[in-house]
Structures are given as structure tokens and as C-alpha cells.
Design a protein around this nucleic acid. Structure first.
Lengths: 344, 344
DNA sequence: GTGTTTACTGTAATCGATTACACTATACCA
DNA sequence: TGGTATAGTGTAATCGATTACAGTAAACAC
């Protein structure tokens, strides 16, 4: 029913080849013909049939973005960057959020290993096993990873420096005299940032010739970013006989959970407990006291990754940096204080 | 290079028709043949070419979801519902976030008026002019709207009851004795919820034979949900000679901005100022005092809408309710108090 | 035994664009 | 003037699946 290229060609008195050229390579068509074709297109309200074009050109004009959740400010921002770049290149975005569910992760990987679904895949914070990610990497569409390292020279990774973020937060607290510092982190199989955070934590301690108390490292194994389990963990931590004097949280949301538990318990921040977050999300900016956190280049994360991806799509053999590490910066606000002597 | 159906057929010793049937309508194929075909598919690692299928079947297996921003908890949740349903139906999701930019809104509408891009469109909180939305509605793909009303009998709308949410919050404050109540809302051309909120606000006043002070209605015209402008507006409001005794904010994020300004000014919540939010997002749950807000059925919003959309896709002539209104519920927490006599 | 139904399979047209190749007309050159 | 380059256009093959239609063989009915 809708007009096809044939109809346009007939109306404009040319062949379909010319219509196609008028649309895709106007420089090969005379100005006059081009105008006639455009007029016909307008007249018939012709819309190109993308399925036909895709079949013929073996391209889809679509990028897939695979993310663990849509409800995280850093990921949000990265996705915005990706969408911006996609639009700029006339491409669209297929959204695949896995919610940390292995089944979904697998299903999306299976789907995306087909060239005909998307032209490229951006995979943020994979929770899948290396062999599955590798399968995707060996699929027909180029792949770029975010926050994941994998032993495959062909697949570029872009990483926020999670080592540095936790390192900086921890160093800040150590400098304030704290030694009993708790780490609240998220862990999951194959979840690279968890390892990096632990490393940053330990490195900061090593620099002052100390070591963290393993009992104060709380790594929750949780598929999603849901908040329910954190409360229990935090209460546990603070209710101990020998509680921490400071807490490093792996993101701002969890840091605010610490705030909530402190309120319950009558613990004053920063007087009784110092707290740091991570990601510099809006929520940490307007609480009392304002949250000391780490600024993370979320938009840049998406931007760098999508640029590399687009590069690969245009030139499949393009050489790309194997890993790109993005800098972070400590943002000092009011949630940390020097350790009181009476609390040592 | 990748195996095609022809190769599978050859290896299995059947025709492509049989391979196709084995995949799409296995009940029409003998068990033995089916197994041979499956074995061949596995052997060759055959992946169906979706472009070819789409061209032939005139379907894409994709839904578009158009949203103003990805960084809003209610929208997030609605998107999750849509994705869940999409996966359940073996479909994928094309994400189109417009950031409230008219140009992007238009560009996506233009893109999606083509049948061959997606099988259906879900449009959440459109900011586009009615004629543009109508153009989309008259496109080839079925359309379902969220939080928008339009004069088109064919296009179903699913709405959160924004009238009721602000009405309930306002009534709560009125019952506590407040009369100088400010409304912080977002406005934009053609943005239905803004009108609904105003209506709820006024209705609550009308019920106690009063009227709101128009000077206390602050409707920011802002494309996005960014936080910068709110601070100024809120300061303005609170610094007046005759400031409000209560504030109704259209969402929790803005309510927390009010918290921040109050902290600056030494205004105590709820003692000096009562505050209500809306949406019951996580951020409001763990602040001090916990935010009184309105619970909004975000997941349900997406769920109801996508169900109607899928229904339409399967049966284009299906009769659907023209508008569906979703209930909301006040969540009373600690951010509101009875009006002190000395403040009257 | 003939006619009819059932179960399965194959042939070949078709979806609507792109593009290699061929062709014509004009411009340009010596 | 003949030859070659250039610009613009057309013809027709092609992408890889789906499916209407036709065909065959076995089962079944009478």
C-alpha cells in the first residue's frame, strides 16, 4: 500500500536506480533530476523501506547498548552519550538491559551475535562469563566493552578508573586519621569493577604501611542495584562491638543508605562516622552533610566507547587502544572529618 | 560468508521451504526432518538473517519507546516494564530519548512514521505539538501514548493520575492548616501533566473554599529535568516577605532541592516548612526528615501501555480503552507538620 | 479399487531496495 | 575530425528469507 521506490521512479519519469542514487549519492545525479525525484517523493509521501535496504546493504543503522540496569545515574549518562553519537551518525539505539540476570545476559548475547541485528555492540559492565563475552566478540558485529577486561586483543575496553576512585576516597580518610575503614562494594561473578575497587582500597592502605581489616570489607553479591540488602549489611557493620570509624561506599546511593542507618542509630556524620560515596550523583549533593564523593566521567565513558565502536564499524581493521582508562577526581564535601582521639 | 538457509537446506537434504518451516512452524514438519534441520543449523552455526525475514514478513520484531529522558526514576521503571513485555514476546526495544529537545522529538517522529522501522511505538510524556503526535498516530505503526491526551479516537492513552497526586498532597497540607502553599511544577508546551497538576492543586483548595495564591505557583519552563534552575526559583520563593508555609513539589528530586535550600537558610523541615514530593523515589526515603510523597504506579504505567500496544500489533482493529487512568496513593512520612499559630 | 483426506515437502514468486555494468550524450582535446 | 574523458541514466541481478501453490505418498472410507 505505501509507495515504493518504483512508484517514485514512475512519477519522476526515471528508473529506480536514479531514485536510489538521488537519495544516497545525490552528487551522481543531475540537479534537475534530483529535484524531480524529491518532488515525487514528497508527493507520494514515500518512505524508504529499511528492511529492503538492510538486506541489500547488509547494514542495519542500529547500535546495541547492553547495560546491567537503566536505573543508575552513571549508566544513564553514558547511554546519553551513546545516543548522542548514534543520532549524529544517523543511527538508532537498541536497548538491552539485563538487570544482572544471567538468563537475560545470555539471551541478549545470543541475539546480538547476528550481524543482521545491529552494526555494533556496546557492552557496559558485563556480568557474563568471559566465554560468553568472547562469543559476542567473535560475532559478526564489532564490540566495545566498558568496565570489563578480557583477554582478547581485538576487543577494546574503556574503563572508569575504579582503582583510583576507591583509592582516592580511602586515602582521604586515611589522611584524616581513620584506620578502621569499611568498604561497601558490589560483587558479582566476572564483575571487573569489584576487583578494581578492592585493589584501590588495599593500595591506599599499603601506602601508609597498614592493611584493611578484612572483616570490614562488605561485598554484597547482588544481581541488581536494589537497596534492600544494603540496610541489613550496614546495620550489621555499625552495630558491632568494634565498629568502623569511616565507610567507603562504592556509589552515592549506598552512601545515602549509610546516612539513613546513622539517623536510626543516632550516629552523627561526620562527627561519629565519616562517609564517602562514589559517582557524584545529584542525590549526594543536597543531603546533610553534603557527601564527599568521587566524580566519574560518565558521559565521557559512553562517548569514548561509542567513538571507538563507530570507528570499527567504518573500518573493521582499525587499530584501537586495547584499554582506555578514564580519570576520576575526589570531590571533598562535608561528610568526612578527622578522627577524634576518643574514638581511636 | 555466514551460512544461509540455502546451505542448511543442502546439508539437511531438504528445501529452504522446509528449513523455514522447521524454524517457524515446526508442527508442519515431520519430527525426523525437524531434527535433521536442527542438526544442520547447529553444525553450520546458522543465524537467520533478520533483514531478509523483515523484508518478507513486513515485521521488525521491534518496539520503539520514546521518552523525554532516561534519568527519571518513574520513566526508568516504566521502561523496565516495557522491556519485560517485549522480551516476553520475543521483541526488542528501540530507545528514543528526546531530552525535551524539539528537534529530536521531531526527528524521532519522522523516523518512526515508517512501518519498516518498528512494529509499534510507545510514547511517554510527549512534548511535541499535537499535529506532530497525530502524524505519528497516522503512521503505519500502532501508537500508544502515556501521559498525554489527544483528540484521536484511535490512539489509546495511559495516564498516571497527576490530578489526584497533587490533589492528595495539597489536601494533606490543607488539612494540616496550611493555606500559603507553593506549587513547584514543570511546564512545557503540550505537556499534559502540567495542566493536570494545576487542576489537582486548585481542586484541593476549592474543597476547603479557598484558592491558591497564584504568586506561589512556580511552573518552570524547562526542557529537561536538570536541577540548576530549581535552586534559584526555590530561593526566590522562600526569601519573600510573605513566604509559603508549605511546598508541593511535582517530584521527589525537586523536593530535595527544597531541602537543600532550607539547609542553606536555616529553615527547619517540617517545623518551619512542610514539603511534599511526588513519585516515591528511593532518594526521598532516606533523607531527614523522610519525605512525604505520592506513590505512582510506574511499572504499571509501562505495563498497561505495552499490553495495549502489543494487542494492537496483533489485532490492528482491536478496541482499546481510549484513556486509562492509574491510581496514586499518598505516602505520609515526616516532612509535613501542622501549621504553627505563630506562622499564620 | 476408487476417491478422499491427511501429512509432509518442493518449486518458484516475492518482498523493495542497491549497485555492477552498460550505455548515451556531451565536452574536451589534439 | 576522430578519440577520449565525463556526467548522467537505465537494465537487471542480487540480498536471504517466506509462503502460495502444487505435488506425492500414505491412510482411510466405502
Amino acid at each position: 500500500m505505501p509507495a515504493k521506490m518504483q512508484d517514485v521512479a514512475r512519477l519522476a519519469g526515471v528508473s529506480t536506480a536514479t531514485v536510489s542514487r538521488a537519495l544516497n549519492t545525490p552528487e551522481l545525479v543531475s540537479t534537475e533530476t534530483h529535484q524531480r525525484v524529491m518532488a515525487a517523493i514528497h508527493e507520494l509521501d514515500y518512505k524508504i523501506n529499511l528492511a529492503a535496504r538492510n538486506l541489500r546493504t547488509n547494514r542495519t543503522g542500529t547500535l546495541a547498548i547492553v547495560i546491567p540496569t537503566i536505573a543508575d545515574p552513571v549508566i544513564n549518562r553514558a547511554v546519553e552519550a551513546v545516543e548522542d553519537a548514534a543520532i549524529e551518525h544517523g543511527m538508532t539505539l537498541l536497548m538491552c538491559s539485563t538487570r544482572g540476570e544471567a538468563a537475560r545476559e545470555q539471551a541478549y548475547i545470543r541475539l546480538l551475535t547476528q550481524q543482521t541485528v545491529v552494526d555494533g555492540v556496546l557492552y557496559i559492565s558485563p556480568r557474563a562469563a568471559p566465554e560468553d563475552v568472547l562469543r559476542l566478540a567473535h560475532g559478526d558485529a564489532p564490540l566495545v566493552l566498558c568496565n570489563y577486561v578480557m583477554d582478547d586483543a581485538r576487543t577494546p575496553s574503556v574503563l572508569v578508573d575504579h582503582v583510583s576512585s576507591i583509592y582516592q576516597a580511602t586515602r582521604h580518610l586515611l589522611a584524616l586519621g581513620h584506620r578502621r575503614i569499611a568498604l561497601l562494594s558490589l560483587d558479582a561473578p566476572y564483575y571487573t569493577p569489584a576487583r578494581m575497587r578492592r585493589e584501590g582500597f588495599e593500595r591506599a592502605f599499603a601506602e601508609v604501611d597498614a592493611a584493611p581489616d578484612p572483616a570490614l570489607i562488605a561485598e554484597i553479591h547482588q544481581p541488581t542495584y536494589a537497596n534492600d540488602e544494603w540496610q541489613a549489611t550496614i546495620r550489621d557493620l555499625l552495630d558491632r562491638a568494634n565498629p568502623p570509624t569511616a565507610v567507603v561506599a562504592f556509589n552515592d546511593e549506598v552512601a545515602l543508605q549509610v546516612y539513613a542507618v546513622c539517623r536510626e542509630r543516632g550516629i552523627r556524620i561526620p562527627h561519629d562516622l565519616s562517609v564517602t560515596g562514589c559517582d557524584d550523583s545529584v542525590s549526594g549533593r543536597y543531603v546533610d552533610p553534603p557527601l564527599t564523593t568521587v566524580r566519574v566521567p560518565a558521559y565521557e565513558l559512553g562517548q569514548v566507547a561509542v567513538r571507538q565502536l563507530l570507528r570499527r564499524i567504518e573500518q573493521p581493521r582499525a587499530r584501537l587502544p586495547r584499554t582506555t582508562l578514564l580519570d576520576v577526581a575526589l570531590v571533598t564535601r562535608g561528610s568526612c572529618a578527622a578522627l577524634h582521639d576518643n574514638l581511636v
